[in-house]
Design a protein around this nucleic acid. Structure first.
Lengths: 156, 156
DNA sequence: TCTTTCACTGCACACATTGTTCAACCGACA
DNA sequence: TGTCGGTTGAACAATGTGTGCAGTGAAAGA
């Protein structure tokens, strides 16, 4: 489950040059090709590597506005609200959090005006009592994992 | 900048089977290999596809606890706080949001107890006035983009 | 209408990589 | 000492990649 130093270097290399092949990786890391293949297989069946899906930028798709909405849910309506939010394409992510009946979701929209439409669609559902939205202005640290990988790898 | 139907199918296919090759994609989509290559190149230089980095699961790395922290920043301390948070591996993401001096960041930790250490490290910085943390319990909708891609593609 | 432009197609070639298997080696451990 | 898991280096056929090119068709502009 924990990763060692070689796994860490493998992940970092893979993050920097994702289209690289197994053979080239083995050359860069100074190990045999079989080793790289075995490590990769292990990391994937471990669940450490969830996948290699393309990282799509919503802004480039025409959705430059991001917002986070905190939702207060009526008791017992959780499952219904989840199902509802899952049907909204602009809901990119949804978490349930501590603090009675709260959810946090990440939204995108075509513009600030369009965000209103999205929010209306999101909160236009019976189980949602209250919603408070924070619009993202800057994203100084985009979603990242490498520093954590390096820390996890350094411990072994 | 906007994507058409073929781009959409390409992205969906790529999301489902990321390790697929260009040739196989062209067969599945029923177009020439050159077309797939050209579309992929265009999507990447467009910035629609940011990359193909491995999606690493923090939980599998030993960090099963996720939390969102809202930070209140002292006027003018924004840049310093950003630089500080960027040095903390457990900070996976950082946004600045509307509402005077607020930031929202995503944290991970080894346990609820460990979360305290992470938060202490995050807020142990002069420019941060107040922090409120919400621990994630469930993640009914994991970060996704495909529904949005399909919506964007359907418009052309 | 004519012409230019552009994306797509189908094909070709040399080359590199992949998946797979094998025997051998090594350190850790009982 | 013997076993085990992980690593190595090698080999093989099969496949995919990068690249270039000529032909086609449809849309855009003159």
């Amino acid at each position: 489950m924990a990763i060692d130093h070689l796994d860490g270097r493998l992940l970092v290399l893979l993050a920097k040059e994702p289209r690289i092949g197994v053979l080239e990786m083995s050359r860069r890391l100074g190990v045999a090709r079989g080793t790289v293949q075995a490590r990769l297989d292990r990391l994937q069946s471990n669940g450490v590597i969830r996948g290699f899906g393309p990282q799509v930028d919503p802004a480039a798709l025409g959705y430059p506005v991001t917002a986070f909405a905190t939702l207060q849910i009526r008791q017992g309506q959780g499952p219904d609200v989840r199902a509802h939010l899952a049907t909204v394409p602009e809901v990119l992510e949804l978490h349930t959090t501590t603090g009675g009946g709260d959810m946090l979701c990440r939204l995108v929209a075509r513009s600030n005006a369009d965000l209103q439409r999205v929010i209306d669609r999101v909160v236009g559902f019976d189980g949602i009592v209250r919603a408070s939205t924070a619009i993202v202005m800057e994203n100084p640290v985009p979603l990242r994992i490498i520093p954590l990988v390096e820390q996890a790898a350094a411990e072994h």
